[in-house]
Simulated scan of single mutants.
Amino acid sequence: MNTLTKTKMLTMVGAITDGMRVMLAEHDDVLLMGEDIGTNGGVFRATDGLQAEFGEDRVMDTPLSEAGFIGAAIGLAVNGFRPVTEIQFMGFIYPAYEQIMTHASRLRSRTLGHYTCPIVIRAPYGAGVRAPEIHSDSTEAIFTHMPGIKVVCPSSAYDAKGLMIAAIEDPDPVLFLEPMRCYRSSREEVPEEKYTVEIGKGKVVNDGEDVTIIAWGAMVKVAEDAAREAAEQGISCEVLDLRTLYPLDKDLISSSVQKTGRTVVVHEAHATGGVGNDVLAIINDTSFLYQKAPVERVTGFDTPVPYFGFEDFYLPDHKRVLEAVKKVAEY
Rank of each mutant, 00 (worst) to 15 (best):
T11A: 14
A15C: 06
M20T: 11
L24G: 08
H27T: 07
D28E: 15
D29E: 15
M33E: 11
I37H: 02
N40G: 14
V43G: 01
G49S: 08
G49Q: 03
E53H: 00
G55E: 06
R58P: 02
R58C: 08
V59Y: 07
M60S: 09
T62E: 08
T62S: 11
L64S: 04
A73Q: 04
A77K: 00
V78Q: 12
V78H: 06
G80W: 01
M90W: 10
A96L: 04
Y97M: 15
Q99F: 09
H103A: 14
S105G: 07
R108H: 14
L112S: 13
I119Q: 03
I119S: 01
A131P: 05
E133T: 13
I134P: 00
H135G: 08
S136W: 00
D137W: 05
D137H: 10
A141I: 00
F143S: 03
T144F: 04
V151E: 01
V152N: 04
C153W: 01
P154Q: 12
A157H: 05
Y158S: 06
K161M: 10
P173H: 02
V174Q: 06
E178C: 10
E178W: 05
V190S: 08
Y195P: 12
T196S: 11
G200Y: 06
V205P: 00
N206M: 14
N206Y: 07
D207N: 12
I214H: 03
M219V: 02
V220D: 02
E229N: 12
Q233F: 00
G234A: 04
S236A: 00
C237F: 03
C237S: 05
C237A: 09
L245R: 04
Y246G: 00
D249Q: 09
L252F: 00
V266W: 04
H267D: 09
H267F: 03
A269N: 11
A271S: 12
T272W: 09
T272E: 12
G274V: 02
L280R: 13
I283P: 03
I283F: 08
I283Q: 07
N284E: 14
S287F: 08
L289V: 10
R297K: 13
T303E: 15
V305E: 13
P306V: 08
Y307C: 14
G309V: 15
Y314M: 07
D317Q: 10
H318L: 08
L322P: 05
V325T: 12
V328H: 07
A329N: 13
A329C: 06
Y331K: 13
